[in-house]
Design a protein around this nucleic acid. Structure first.
Length: 228
DNA sequence: GCGACAG
DNA sequence: ATCTTGTCGC
């Protein structure tokens, strides 16, 4: 094999996985997902985001827990780890999940719901980062991505709250949601223990004055450079 | 073979 | 994701 593929394989080896094996694992794990509502009363929602400070080879995961009723911050946690997997479209979770799980474990109490930065089922094998993190942590999870990985949808009305199903190969894999009038839509999809309808409901409930949910905005800052 | 491609 | 200031547009 050439030098590049050799390097990718060695990095992936930290997970004992080649990209091909990772795809196979996604298909296996996807069978265990719960895609209907199996969650209790939601009082706290956690925003999860990952950052890569100055390309220094480390992955920083930030988790911020907010109260659903007033979106005030309850608790936050950060975890850093050496980056052990390259960015490969469709395999994002293998890069972000390890640090995210560690940050979650540092919370004094698990949140009732996870709002992840990235896709849930709106993924080639229906197993985006929100599915991976939700399944491994066993916490209901929703994927809220800033851009599209795959799928098509009908034209979206310009006003806030407008949404359309996101489809791929004849199935609905998520939805595009206009979080603010005229802005680029959000790509919302179930991660684990949540239906699409419920995913849209809680994503809308976390919206404040900006395009992105407050949960991910706060987590963004923590995962960013100048903090921690 | 030629694009597309979460973060 | 990250590199980075001012600038075009509503």
């Amino acid at each position: 094999m050439d030098a590049d593929s050799a390097k990718r394989r060695s990095v992936a080896h930290a997970w004992n996985l080649t990209p091909e094996e990772a795809r196979g694992l996604q298909k296996t794990l996807a069978e265990r997902l719960i895609l209907n509502d199996q969650l209790g009363p939601v009082q706290t929602v956690a925003g999860v985001d990952i950052g890569f400070p100055r390309g220094r080879g480390i992955t920083r995961a930030a988790v911020v827990v907010l109260r659903l009723d007033d979106l005030s911050v309850v608790e936050q946690a950060v975890a850093e780890e050496p980056t052990r997997f390259p960015y490969v479209p469709g395999l994002l979770s293998f890069r972000e999940v390890p640090a995210a799980l560690r940050a979650l474990q540092r919370l004094s109490r698990p949140p009732d719901l996870l709002l992840c930065d990235g896709q849930g089922t709106a993924h080639p094998r229906r197993f985006g980062v929100a599915c991976h993190l939700g399944l491994l942590s066993d916490i209901p999870a929703i994927g809220v991505a800033k851009s599209r990985l795959l799928g098509e949808h009908a034209p979206l009305a310009r006003e806030k709250g407008a949404w359309q199903p996101l489809r791929d190969k004849g199935e609905t894999i998520g939805a595009v949601l206009r979080s603010r009038a005229g802005v680029r839509p959000l790509y919302v999809s179930p991660g684990h223990r949540v239906s699409l309808e419920t995913a849209l409901h809680y994503t809308s409930a976390c919206l404040g004055r900006y395009r992105l949910p407050e949960t991910t905005r706060v987590a963004d800052r923590l995962a960013g450079d100048r903090s921690a």
